[in-house]
């Protein structure tokens, strides 16, 4: 479970995120959307323990990120928009390295299963430089999932993927949600959010402008048009046209 209370992040005097509070329960997929500069990536980085918030509290599966960061990091996975890989480690070596960091007892089996699931088993001995953008993304996903996290943060997970990769990524996310993982996905692709998210959080200039289930948010901003697309809802919520 992800619990966020009054999260605020300042860059000097500028508030990138202001007083943000929400909860993502096991099995829920929260879509984080907003215009450019709304504070989506900053929010994800604060939740993943990469940068400290100026104010507020974050609990990951019950562990306070400020007071017990190691326990919190042990159960979370963060997937940035650009895969962060070591150019000199092969696919298999990446998994071995990650498994040791997270102390995964059955790492070999878990790794092989993930490689098969993500359809990169035949690239196990390849270096990142030999992989396509989509395959690198899959490798980053495999590394993030090898320790069976209970919480995952995705930043633009479909960037650079082909239609097969997109389908596979959606399946992977939905399977984890069904397995009880709490997921937070930041994306500009509203059709993806509509398709796989159970909840929606719309940010604008670092502030929450809408939060709830997809249907709740749709009702809130397009009451007169129940069939309105998420795109219409987004524009109404953020004051765009």
């Amino acid at each position: 479970m992800i619990e966020v209370e009054g999260l605020t992040k300042l860059y000097g005097d500028f508030a990138a995120v202001s007083d943000l509070s929400f909860v993502v329960r096991p099995g829920e997929v929260l879509g984080l959307v907003g215009p450019n500069g709304a504070g989506k990536t900053t929010t994800l980085r604060c939740l993943a323990g990469i940068m400290p918030p100026a104010k507020g509290a974050v609990r990951i599966a019950g562990h306070d990120l400020a007071t017990d960061p190691l326990a919190a990091k042990q159960v979370l996975a963060y997937f940035p928009d650009e895969p962060r890989l070591f150019e000199y480690l092969t696919v298999r070596q990446h998994l071995a390295f990650t498994a040791r960091l997270y102390q995964v007892a059955d790492a070999e089996r878990a790794g092989e299963e993930l490689l098969r699931e993500l359809e990169i088993a035949d690239k196990a001995d390849a270096l990142p430089g030999e992989l396509s953008r989509g395959m690198k993304q899959k490798l980053a996903i495999a590394c993030g999932l090898v320790h069976a996290p209970r919480v995952a943060f995705f930043d633009e997970p479909l960037t650079g993927l082909d239609p097969y990769g997109i389908r596979r990524m959606k399946d992977t996310i939905l399977e984890r949600a069904r397995g009880g993982m709490a997921l937070l996905i930041s994306s500009h692709l509203l059709h993806l959010v509509d398709e796989i998210c159970t909840h929606l959080l719309i940010l604008k200039q670092g502030r929450r402008v809408a939060h709830g289930t997809i249907d709740d948010v749709r009702r809130q901003f397009a009451e007169s048009a129940p069939d309105a697309s998420l795109e219409d809802v987004f524009f109404r919520a953020t004051g765009g046209s």
Binding site: F86, Y88, L89, Q93, A96, F97, A99, R100, L101, Q103, V104, A105, D106, A107, E108
Partner: peptide, 18 residues
């Protein structure tokens, strides 16, 4: 690199490969 053991050894292993 065994999956269990001291974590800094993972970084040593990675950097030796590098």
């Amino acid at each position: 690199l065994a999956p269990l053991g001291r974590r800094p050894i993972a970084l040593l292993w990675k950097n030796l490969i590098s």
